[in-house]
Amino acid sequence: MTLLLFLEQVLNGLQFGVMLFLMAAGLTLVFGVMGLINLAHGSLYMIGAFAAAATAAATGSFLLGLAAALAAAAAAGAIVEVAVIRRLYPRDHLDQVLATFALILIFSEGTRWIFGSFPLFLDTPPWLSGPVTLPGGIQYPLYRLALIGVGLAVAAGLFLLIARTRLGIQIRAGESDREMIAALGIDISRLYTLVFALGAALAGLAGALVGAIQSVQVGMGEPVLILAFVVIVIGGIGSIKGALVGAILVGLTDTLGGVLLPLLFGVFLDPSAAMSIGSALASMSIYILMAAVLVVKPQGLFG
């Protein structure tokens, strides 16, 4: 493999990682502030993608689609928080797991009921499609570069939000002492709804952005959800920095593992056996990474 191809794959891993970060950030924020484990986070990702696809199809505008995704996911998040999630904060994790599992059932079949059983169409906007030539001669899709840019910008914005704004101070206070900030007169239930809607909007944004280059279909959220879990376990639950580092680690491991492992086995096995063993191992590589991190640091890298 040439160095250029390797660099291109690193870029691919980075792009995957940045999108995972958008998912993981919401999960880890909700857990950090409210102590809630939300299995239905993947459904919000799906809602974002469907809202974007439906809006883009109706208006022809990708940006309006993105706006719709943010709005729909944030609204769905806020409604769910007020109607259901709010009752779960004092409960143990077991009840939270079950209730959000039930929400997945409702969201998935509800989406299928509204949009039908076939995948929806969502395409990259014309001004972002096609490849560009990077220094060194790598041909790389412009849209994926934009994804990396958007993801990093959102990450930076999130850090600023938490470090510099009033909301950020409240979030950080909520993470360290929940009773205290209520005692200080902060409207805690409004804060919780806001944080949940923010996490949902990030997931919806990820769904819409990724939906343009993938299949927009019912159930698209669950595989990403599980990867996002791996990310925040590696990074340390509740830590935004951990989520960013974990996401990029997982993105790189998954992409490079899929490319390099079959090559590695090809050194001492015949090509088709190397291909199938290498692929099998590659599909497990991120879980192996997670186990390794946990052996060294049971609370994750930044937990």
Binding site: F31, I37, H93, V97, I226, F229, V230, I232, V233, I237, S276, S279, A280, S283, M284, Y287, I288, M290, A291, L294, V295, P298, Q299, G300, G303
Partner: peptide
């Protein structure tokens, strides 16, 4: 070695590891 939410997510991830292995093991 972990507890609480970590435990939930780790067991989930190990389950997935078995799942992917079973699918790709010919």
């Amino acid at each position: 070695r972990t507890s609480g939410v970590y435990f939930i997510m780790i067991t989930l991830a190990f389950g997935q590891m078995f799942y992917y292995f079973a699918i790709s093991w010919p």
